[in-house]
Every structure is written in C-alpha cells, then in structure tokens.
Design a protein around this nucleic acid. Structure first.
Length: 422
RNA sequence: GCCGGGGUUGCCGAGACUGGAAAGGCGCGAGCCUGGAGAGCUCGUUCUCGAAAGAGAUCAAGGGUUCAAAUCCCUUCCCCGGCGCCA
C-alpha cells in the first residue's frame, strides 16, 4: 500500500510511476483519490468539532451532578449531538472505503532500474549451456520410465497438476530441502516452519488482491487460506507490531509446502512437475531498516545464485520488467535455469524487494529516535523443489536413461544415481 | 468441546465491583545541572486532522446501553489453568 501522504504531497511521483507501467486506468484514480481525500478531511474536521463539543458538555454534566445541581438542560443539548455525528460519520466511512479501495490496488513505486516494457532484461549468466550427444527425455518421461513418480494416479484422486513422488525421487526432494536449509543456516538465516493456513486479514496484507482470487485455496466454512508460499506467513507474523531496531535485520529461512490454484493456466503444462498445485519450498525472508533493503536484495539474489551454481546448473538472472513485476515488489530478479529439453531458460527463483509496501498494509514498524517507521520486507526463493527437480532430471540424465545426483546432494541422499525402480 | 481466570500505551502494571480527564514504575529521547560522568529534576515518548494553536481517536476486535464506557450488556478472536477428546 502506498502512503496517502505521498499522493497528497507528491502526486507527480505516483503518476510518473503509473505512466512507466503504462497503467492508464489507475492513472485516472489519482485525481479521484485527491478529491475524495479533500472531502474526507473536511468531514473529519467537522466531526471532530462536534465530538469536541459533546465531550465538553458531557464533562460539564459530570461536574454539575457532582455538585448536586440540575443538569437536565445540558443533557438535552448533549443528546442531540450524537445524531449529527452519526450522519457525518456515515459519509466519512463511504469516502474512506473508496479511498482504501484505490489505495489497496495502487502498485508499489518502482526502483529506477526496473526495465520499462514487456521484456525482462538478462543481467547475468552463470555456468555453461550443457551439450548432449544423445536424445534427451523430458522429466515426465524420465519419472515414468524410472518409476519414481506417478502423475496418472495423482490425477485420479486429486486432479491434474498433482503428483506422487516415489522412491529415490522422494529422497532427492528431501535432500534438496535439507541441503538448502543448511546452506542458509550457515549464512545466518534462521530456519522456521510457518502455519500452512492464514486468515484473510493477514493475507490481504501480503498479497496482490487479484492474485488472492486466482491463487489461494480457501478452507470451507473457515476464515482460512492455504499459504501460497512461506513468504506470506513469515512476513505477516509481525502484523501490528513495533519492532526493536536491535532485532533487525530479521533473517529467516522458511520451510513449507506451498499451495496454488494456478487458475487461468488451463491447458498449459498440465502434466509434470513444472506447474503444480502443491510443492515444497525453502524461502528466504529479510525484514530490515529501509536504508539497508537494497543491500539485502542483492544478498538474497547472491544466496540463490550460489546455491544453484553449487548444483552445477546453468542459469541466467533477469531483471523483471514493468509488464511482469506485479503490484507488490519495487524490484524483482528471477533466476531462470536452462532446461535442455525445451531449450529454454525457465523460472526457478523470484527475488523481490517489497520496500515498505507490505509493511504499511500489515502495520509493521520499528522504533527510531525520530519516531516509529515502517520496515522494509524482502523475499526470495531459495529453492522450490519441484522446479529444481525438473532441472536436475533433465540436465543430469545419462544416455542409459538414469539420473546422476548432483555432487553436493550425495551426502544427503546416500546414493549417486537414480536408476529404474521396481 | 466444557468450566474458571485473563487481554490496558515500547515493557511492567493500577483503574472495573460503585460509568464522569488512562495512576505509577521501567526503558528510550530532549533539556537543566556537572570539569566530566552519574544521580537528581523538567518535559516528551501511539494514530489521525491541522501551517500552528489546538482538536479528535485509541484500553484484543466488533456491536449495544448512556449526555458520558477501559469500566455495564452481547458476539467473536487470542492467552493462562483445570476437565474431556486425541496423533
């Protein structure tokens, strides 16, 4: 959420940001917000005046009664005021609701380095594109031929985009999680398990409202939603708190399953592990003072890059453009791993600096000499196991159809190779 | 799920029965004092509107009663204790 004061005092900043995004609809909102805000403030000073009078009279009644004098005149006067207040309050409420509607939907102010347009800009390439002298199998074919997973039966009981992992592939998934957790632990990030469900109020603080409908699974008859990523509970956990600056930065390594509806992607990649309704993810979270957030944004990216480099996967980093960035992040990097079967770079990591956008919605502040200020929140994938598994299966396959386990994971799997299982 | 006790400002904590200006302490900040430090004293320490003076809001959340609610009534959430159920 944006600061209403920013729109009041520097509407041109907000306008030029929306122009950069090419969002003509929301551009029109600014004047409307300013007008509603003017009206709201007028009503506020009127109602405050009425309240002031009511409070004064009520106090006088108290004094008269204490002295044993007749207060019926004053009581009659005071009884009239609440009706007037109520009328004005209704008007104020409707203005406020309209302002909030717009405010909640206005996107964050972008960092100046965000590329304008529909093209993400590659900023870094790591490793070499691998060459293969045999015919490659897709990860789906590999899973099925090695009997290390089952898509058909998962579809039978749960629907498409669900999966069973079996045997050594299950072990590999857990090995990735443990390896990533330990990797982050060594870099000073505290491992943490969040609740897998969260209520609506907390959810609205962390996510884009349109995503909310397309992505979230709702629990029937409960005010609860399955988390789409541990970023959400781990950021929302400090809702309505004022943090001690000595406790900052907070660095977490979230470990959880993630649940996503993937509405609006019918027909695209309905089978396999790439786009699924449920997967495991190790996430990086930083909550820090505003002055430090750009430093930590680079740190989060570095952590994820180092991890993928240690797995010996070839990837590139892209700076996400205005057309793709969404409403919450001020700047976002993706890591895209080379998938040799599709001959494409595909997203495996998303690394965002949300600046004070989530903090303002969630009301998370920290104490400073100049008063309480909003913190900055950042998040990045460390590893989402299913997409990493796709990359590993396709990049580490051998001519005989087996899979070589990446060196760094062997200590956790206890085996070097995945061959056809019974 | 049932019974009982709770939720007050950054933290602790009084006020509730009997409605009438959110006590006191700690922490933090500014100032006075000091050769310096400490102690002591004074002021400040949430949000909103306002150029300011000032005003309003705020006692878990929401509603009700009342001229007036932290205080009385209702609903919901959360915490603690006991009982029940349970991997």
């Amino acid at each position: 959420m944006l600061d209403i004061n920013l729109i009041r005092n520097n509407p041109e900043i907000v306008r030029s940001d929306l122009e950069k995004r090419g969002d003509k609809e929301k551009l029109l909102w600014i004047d409307e917000i300013l007008e509603l805000d003017r009206e709201w403030r007028k009503l506020k000073s009127k109602t405050d005046e009425l309240r002031h009078r009511r409070n004064k009279v009520a106090l006088e009644i108290g004094i008269l009664k204490k002295e044993g004098k007749d207060a019926s005149e004053k009581i009659k006067e005071a009884a009239e005021i609440p009706k007037e207040i109520e009328k004005l309050e209704e008007e104020m409420k409707s203005k406020r609701e309209k302002i909030d509607y717009y405010l909640k939907r206005l996107p964050n102010i972008l960092h100046e380095s965000v590329p304008v347009g529909e093209e993400n800009v590659p900023v870094k390439f790591v490793g070499e594109k691998p060459e293969f002298d045999f015919e490659l199998k897709s990860h789906i074919d590999l899973v099925e031929s090695l009997n290390i997973g089952d898509f058909e039966r998962a579809a039978k009981i749960s629907g498409s985009r669900f999966f069973f992992l079996k045997g050594k592939l299950t072990v590999l998934d857990l090995a990735l999680q443990y390896y990533a957790m330990e990797f982050m632990l060594r870099r000073g990030y505290k491992p943490i398990y969040p609740p897998y469900m969260m209520n609506r109020k907390a959810y609205e603080g962390v996510t884009d409202l349109r995503d909310f409908e397309d992505v979230m699974y709702k629990i029937e008859d409960e005010d609860l939603y399955l988390i789409a990523t541990s970023e959400h509970p781990l950021t929302a956990m400090y809702m309505n708190e004022i943090l001690n600056p000595d406790d900052l930065p907070i660095k977490y390594c979230g470990i959880s399953a993630c649940f996503r509806k993937e509405a609006g992607t019918h027909g695209r990649e309905t089978k396999g592990l790439f786009r699924v309704h449920q997967f495991n993810k190790i996430e990086q979270i930083v909550i820090c003072e505003p002055e430090e957030s750009w430093k930590y944004h680079e740190e989060l990216l570095k952590n994820a890059m180092d991890l993928f480099e240690s797995l010996k996967l070839h990837f590139r980093v892209v700076n996400i453009c205005t057309g793709d960035i969404g409403t919450v992040a001020a700047k976002k990097y993706d890591i895209e791993v080379w998938m040799p079967v599709q001959r494409e770079y595909r997203e495996v990591v998303s690394c965002s600096n949300c600046t004070d956008y989530q903090a303002r919605r969630l009301n998370i502040k920290y104490r400073t000499k100049e008063g309480n200020k909003f913190v900055h929140t950042l998040n990045s994938t460390c590893i989402a196991t299913t997409r990493a598994l796709v990359a590993i299966l396709e990049n580490f396959q051998t001519p005989d159809g087996s899979i070589t386990v990446p060196e760094v994971l062997r200590k956790y799997t206890g085996f070097k190779k995945i061959e056809k299982e019974k």
